[in-house]
Nucleic acid binder design. Structure first.
Length: 293
DNA sequence: CACTTGACCTGTCCGC
DNA sequence: TGCGGACAGGTCAAGT
């Protein structure tokens, strides 16, 4: 599948921030309540007629701010897409091979936002795990998820020592589960957990408390490296993920272990294996990443 | 309280 | 070819 993590959501944010501000909402169509639980009357009242004033991100969540002082809060979960089309565009910009989405709406479209200039923003979500919610902007950070979520790993004040201390909040669990815990650090999912652990030569089953200071520091460096690199590459597209123009990301062509089971480790040549850790499919080089005793 | 498992969904793939 | 079941994995709720 596809799995929007921090780099994918940030790529969508960058795209939407270049496309949406200034546009005025003319109408909103939505018919799957769990995808957008707000009452239609509130959507009419606080979205229709409002202009978009900014697009932000916190963890894996997108925040589209409106002139009505409300914000459209969106979590893409696994298969969500936010795709923008101008009035006359039938397909996404760029070469057809760069796009996974055809004419919109399609059968995965859960919400369509139409702007006064005829352009539209489509919220597609094959598996319906994602959601949109309209909230007063001053109250957005009061939702449970934001109250608990950890720091942004790419913020300048996020140091390796903070990373270590927050991971140690889960010192008795394995390092993979700790990395995936959004209350420890924001935005890491299955792809970048596996990629960073491979880079640091740490087995995902390793108990957090058994890691040395040097290993924490190395894991921090590798995590920051893969997150930044992936943003440069427009994120990872395996099956569903596309950016705001419908374009695929190219991190997967760089990935060292993720989805590379049975292929040679690019560092030592041993065969990469897929195992199960923290209830997730997990990719490791059994030679570089030794199983803890 | 720390940690694990199941539920939410749909589409794809694998084995019989 | 059809069909059941496993699997994909972000997050919350429920269970141990």
């Amino acid at each position: 599948m596809d799995m929007p993590e921090l780099p994918e959501v940030e790529t969508v944010r960058i795209g939407l921030a270049a496309l949406l501000p200034g546009r005025a909402i003319a109408s909103v169509d939505f018919d799957w309540p769990k995808s957008f639980p707000n009452a239609p009357a509130d959507v009419e009242r606080f979205m229709v007629g409002a202009k978009i004033t900014g697009v932000r991100r916190r963890a894996k969540v997108l925040l589209v701010e409106l002139s009505s002082k409300y914000s459209l809060v969106t979590h893409l979960k696994m298969t969500g897409q936010l795709v923008f089309r101008s009035r006359d565009e039938r397909f996404g910009a760029g070469h057809p091979n760069e796009s996974l989405v055809g004419e919109l709406p399609d059968k995965s479209t859960r919400v369509t936002i139409s702007f006064e200039d005829g352009s539209r923003l489509f919220f597609n979500d094959q598996r319906k795990f994602g959601w949109m919610r309209l909230l007063p902007t001053p109250e957005v950070m009061n939702i449970d998820f934001f109250k608990k979520v950890g720091p942004e790993p790419l913020n300048a004040d996020f140091t390796w020592q903070i990373f270590r201390d927050r991971l140690m909040r889960r010192k008795n669990t394995n390092i993979k589960a700790a990395l995936l815990d959004q209350t420890v650090v924001a935005g890491i999912g299955n792809i970048y957990a596996d990629e960073a652990l491979w880079g640091a030569k740490i087995h995902p089953s390793t108990t957090v408390s058994s890691l040395s200071a040097a290993k924490f520091h190395k894991l921090y460096d590798e995590l920051i490296f893969v997150l930044k690199l992936s943003i440069e590459k427009g994120g990872s597209t395996d099956k569903n993920y596309v950016d705001a123009k419908g374009k695929k990301g190219s991190y997967m062509s760089f990935a060292r272990v993720f989805r590379r089971e049975s292929l040679p480790c690019p560092r030592c040549g041993h065969t990469i294996e897929k195992i199960r850790v923290a209830g997730r499919g997990t990719h490791v080089c059994p030679h570089c990443q030794r199983v803890p005793a």
